[in-house]
């Protein structure tokens, strides 16, 4: 009896698992393998030499540092903003769908035209400086000075807020209404409801959003490159720039090394988040 039940569950996971192994696990392994050879084609095993070299590489360390700074500003900011807006949208009885759509707009506009838009806005002779010049403020070189970090954070939030909001809204809708009804019967206040039901039950979603934010903080760089180029102002030279440039230089082994360190770091964070989730839900 027991073995039969086990089999039927396996049928559900098997199709996905097979494809997952072929298209994700296997590339993952191949990619990691490159971290231990000296060149992408006909490479020879060099042990941990690539890791040693990487930690001596000035560009890598700079990229790592800048990425950490960027993430520690943008991810919490984005988290709070999207949670707040999702809660507001969820409360709005009318036009809920319209608002959801509005915040998804940044995801839908093709990157080519968003890039064009931001460039025109922040260029030295751009629209923003035009507005400033009317008010009487001297032109600011937004993209070539340390102001560029703010521009990048702004673009990141603009682009990803909708993404997170959709995930959070889905999470909010997943909370069974009975929980609130039961709490209401018990005489719980609004804040208590929020803390003990909304937040607790939203935790799996929040963890999902946090992990996706980390991933998306890498993805948004497609736009950043196109706006500021491969070698931007040094305050926004990120790991992603480093990796992209490594790819351009055919230095795949260094790219793979940087990736495996990155994955290890994010794995630790993810592990921590899952641990927290389990602790709270218990």
């Amino acid at each position: 009896m027991k073995s039969k039940r086990f089999d039927s569950t396996l049928l559900f996971i098997l199709p996905g698992l097979v494809g997952f192994v072929i298209f994700f696990i296997w590339p993952f392994i191949i990619s990691l393998g490159y971290a231990f050879v000296d060149q992408p084609v006909n490479g020879v095993f060099v042990g941990v030499q690539n890791f040693v070299d990487l930690f001596r590489n000035k560009a890598y360390l700079k990229g790592l540092m800048n990425t950490l700074i960027f993430m520690s500003i943008s991810i919490p900011l984005n988290m709070f903003l999207s949670l707040g807006i999702a809660l507001l949208v969820n409360k709005a009885n009318k036009h809920k769908e319209a608002f959801t759509l509005l915040f998804l707009i940044p995801l839908v506009i093709p990157s080519g035209s968003t890039v064009f838009f931001w460039k025109m806005l922040f260029a030295y002779d751009g629209y923003l400086n035009y507005i400033l010049s009317i008010v009487g403020i001297t032109k600011i070189n937004w993209l070539e000075t340390s102001y560029v970090l703010f521009v990048v954070v702004l673009i990141f939030i603009w682009k990803n807020l909708g993404y997170n909001m959709v995930l959070i809204l889905a999470g909010l809708n997943n909370i069974p209404k009975e929980y609130y009804e039961a709490a209401y019967v018990d005489g719980a206040g609004r804040f208590q409801c929020f803390r003990h039901i909304t937040l607790i039950n939203l935790l799996p979603t929040i963890i999902l959003v946090l992990i996706m934010s980390i991933i998306n903080s890498f993805k948004v760089f497609k736009e950043i490159y196109l706006i500021t180029g491969n070698y931007p102002h040094s305050s926004i030279y990120m790991l992603q720039h480093f990796m992209n440039n490594m790819f351009h230089s055919l230095n795949y082994q260094r790219l793979a090394t940087a990736t495996s360190i990155l994955v290890l770091m994010i794995a630790v964070i993810t592990q921590f988040l899952f641990k927290m989730e389990r602790k709270v839900s218990r």
Partner: peptide, 10 residues
């Protein structure tokens, strides 16, 4: 979590 550049070649 793998960045795109890292998985293009595999």
């Amino acid at each position: 979590l793998m960045p795109l550049q890292a998985v293009l070649v595999p």
